[in-house]
Design a protein around this nucleic acid. Structure first.
Lengths: 229, 229
DNA sequence: CTAGTTATTTATCATCTGATAAACTAGAGG
DNA sequence: CCTCTAGTTTATCAGATGATAAATAACTAG
């Protein structure tokens, strides 16, 4: 907008940070755009407008199109940035390390998992894209079921003295049961970042309690069912 | 639904149900628009376009504006339709009826609650509006905490032989703990209607198991904590 | 200091989209 | 069959919005 580009360093800096409008190297500008786009789309959803995004960046809207041919391309890039470009810890091994109590493993897992995914941008972009029917989500869920929930089922079986998953494959109902606690903890992030509810700061305490209850309860119920199942 | 009321039975019915375009009384048309809008916005989100909605209804777009001054007004009406216009059962009393086992009460509650809210339109419109930052959601959550979760906490206290909520008020952490199972069960609907995941049909079985585990686990953990809390 | 490269802006399009006004007509009442 | 009411359509607008092309200017190399 304001085009005082000449050499005078704009001491003004009026109300909206009248950017000195320096040039960036292509690579840096691109990353800057992606970073801001992640924030922007997390907040506004994917119907957020390119002009508003550009304004936030302090650049003009057509500049976006130098780096991304279409808005859709930018969105794809945002997905990559949030879901793919970051390597995830080896959660399977963390979960299946039977030298440690299952309670501790689960608490550690959710500590690590929440740090990575229970973030404002992650949660919201995930939900927006799910509502849009992006394939991304289904793929992600497949991974979660395979790398996280199935191992958990196996550990829970062991914990309750039930058959291994080799002896008796995991049933949908077991997966759904694990989804209740997994989803219940995830829901903490939904309440925080999507509903903007007041939630207690101490997520670790919530996890510890939920895990303890789940383990104790599972053992009790499992023993009970032993007879009639 | 079919409205070929005029004398000529349109044998055409070409590709898009070339509606006979009958007139409706204002009240009926309005209701028809609202009904379809609920479906439409649930599917597309609130950035769905009025023209497309009109096409689905087999009417022209300006006709919408005879019944609703602005798109926003229509959306508000959709909110009313989905969240307010339906009277909800008296869940508090169902939950606090101590003449019945808590397990049964909770199972019945979730049977009733899920029937009402775990629906395609309800879930999706709820999530869309939450992402938009509508006040509606926060209001709804307040109600849930007051009418459902707080009673649940009270019953759980009683079940575990802990102080009543009059003796010792509910803490945020207790509410958050109940949110884990409540949200975990709600997450079933999210997986079904937002993620389009395959979930087991038998939701009652999931509830029964989750409730049983939660109750048994809470009792066990509560007894354990008795000493050091 | 000059010239060349390329990051960035200005100007502009075509289409979409919410909204309005006026013309039209189905159907009820007489 | 006529007439009037009100439900519906046609035509159209203004602003928004994704995208493009050409002009401009910041930085770099020589």
């Amino acid at each position: 907008m304001r085009k005082d580009s000449t050499k005078r360093p704009p001491k003004t800096d009026e109300k909206k940070a009248a950017a000195p409008r320096r040039r960036l190297r292509a690579v840096n500008r691109e990353q800057q755009i992606v970073d801001e786009a992640v924030n922007f789309f997390a907040e506004k959803g994917f119907s957020g407008q390119t002009r508003e995004l550009a304004t936030r960046l302090g650049i003009t809207q057509p500049l976006l199109y130098r780096y991304f041919p279409t808005k859709r391309d930018l969105i794809e890039r945002v997905f990559d940035e949030v879901y793919l470009n970051r390597e995830s810890p080896d959660w399977s091994s963390l979960l299946t390390d039977r030298s440690r109590p299952l309670h501790d493993r689960l608490c550690d897992f959710y500590g690590s998992y929440s740090e990575m995914t229970y973030r404002y941008e992650w949660i919201r972009i995930y939900m927006f894209s799910a509502l849009m029917g992006e394939k991304l989500n289904r793929r992600y869920i497949k991974i979660v079921e395979k790398k996280i929930l199935t191992p958990m089922c196996a550990e829970l079986r062991d914990y309750c003295g039930q058959p291994t998953i080799e002896e008796k494959p995991i049933r949908q109902i077991e997966l759904d049961h694990i989804w209740v606690i997994h989803g219940g903890l995830f829901y903490y992030a939904i309440r925080k970042h999507i509903y903007h509810s007041r939630v207690s700061k101490d997520f670790a305490a919530i996890v510890s309690r939920a895990v303890a209850v789940m383990l104790a309860g599972s053992k009790a119920v499992s023993a009970e069912l032993e007879t009639n199942d």
